[in-house]
Design a protein around this nucleic acid. Sequence first.
DNA 1: TTGATGATGGCCT
DNA 2: GGCCATCATCAAG
Length: 209
Amino acid sequence: MIPKKVDRLLLQPIDSSFFDMPTLELARSLLGKLLVKETRAGITAGWIVETEGYIGPADRAAHSYGNRRTARTDVMFGPPGYVYTYVMHTHCLINVVSGPVNHPEVVLIRALEPFCGIELMYARRGTDKRKEELTNGPGKLTKALGIEKADYGRPLFARPLFVAEGKEIESVSVGRRIGIENSGEARDYPWRFWVSGNRFVSKTRRQGE
DNA sequence: TTGATGATGGCCT
DNA sequence: GGCCATCATCAAG
């Protein structure tokens, strides 16, 4: 039963130690957790239903491939549990930094199931379509939650942008990652995870389900 | 400075 | 399925 009003105190940031696990394990563990963003406009949150692991330096699809350290990838080389945002075309994508210091690995959050602040999500997305359209893609969910490139480097275990406990997942599906066709052998790595049968998983290519 | 390149999304046929 | 808007990023010149 979803409460009509979500008490801010109901949503507590997870402990920073949560992020201290291998990247693919974290990608699975994030499924069912809540991603929360608090702004002056209000609170928006959704259950994470789709993730992908990017494991530099050996992963050709990762921005940190070959240990490439630039202004953009810098946060990946720090401790886990911090935000890696970057702009793809006109859209902002959010990743969770994982792995120990100097291991530039991340988990990309690709889709959410809206939990609260749904009216605000509709307003930010500028659409009146079905609820699935709000957050069923990495660029869509950031817009719905008001996540921006400026969130780069923020901890995900403290307000205003954080992970919180959610609900148990019955079954996880595994498959190839999306949109990395030019990444050689890495394009076939089964490093995409999603909640089996969930309606909010991004539509592009559902193989393996 | 400049040009090439996308971990996308929305609209079109 | 195809097309492409639009811009941060990065490496080369």
